[in-house]
Amino acid sequence: MAKIVAGVATSHVPAIGAALDNGKTQEPYWQRVFAGYEESKKWIAEVKPDVCIVVFNDHATAFSVDVVPTFALGCAAEFAPADEGWGPRPVPVVHGHPELAAHIAQSVILDEFDLTVVNNMEVDHGLTVPLSLMFGQPEEWPCKIIPLAVNVVLFPPPTGNRCFNLGAAIRRAVESYPEDLKVVIFGTGGMSHQISGPRAGLINSEFDKAFLDGMSNDPQKIIKIKHVEYMREAGAEGIEMVMWLVMRGALDEHVRERYRFYTVPASNTAVGHLILENPSQMAAE
């Protein structure tokens, strides 16, 4: 049987990808950011997941304003890194797990989460930067990746509560898949940031730290945060944090916080990162 052993939350700042791709990781500014992921790279190399489900958002790359799906699950065998205007990132092609993805799609739709199935999608920094942070710069990504795109570009995104419940449905789907697979789920984006308009540059470390605490100890509290509160307190684009709640919903009520990292800034953004282990599933190891 497949099982979700842990959740990873991380920001996906595009400049982090650019710093990696342009060999700037040793500059003090970027060293501060990358140093925060050294432990995490060791952790995931030890855990060796077979599959990572990466909850991310597309930044007007695969989805324009023609069609905006709220939840879209990548069911293809491959996802190519996209050209976002600066040329594609020099990172490996992402290999999916079409069978597990198809099973998840079927399971959650029948569980009343009406997500969109995607068979052709290029992936942008929202997906590839978290992979780079966790896996470094390998020739090939070391596991299969199932992308789950959440709309956070066109207001309103799904609520935190809806995201959390979808996470729980994804867990049920994974646990009903017959193959023995070790799965890690990523919630990406955030933390506080605003990159648009005269209020750009907003950072709210107090909000972010309370959110990190809530992810660890009190998810029922943070799933109630309203969209207007995210935008007012954590910046217009800080609303991306709802994506972390999909990950949290796929874990046990009580989790073990294995690792936490927080730093300001990376470009326009507060960087937050958590590793939460799922005690009931890790124990079976």
Binding site: V153, F155, G197, R199, A200, M231
Partner: peptide, 11 residues
């Protein structure tokens, strides 16, 4: 959300 300053919410 129209009361949030310096921000145009893309709805």
């Amino acid at each position: 959300y129209s009361d949030i300053p310096g921000t145009t919410v893309f709805d």
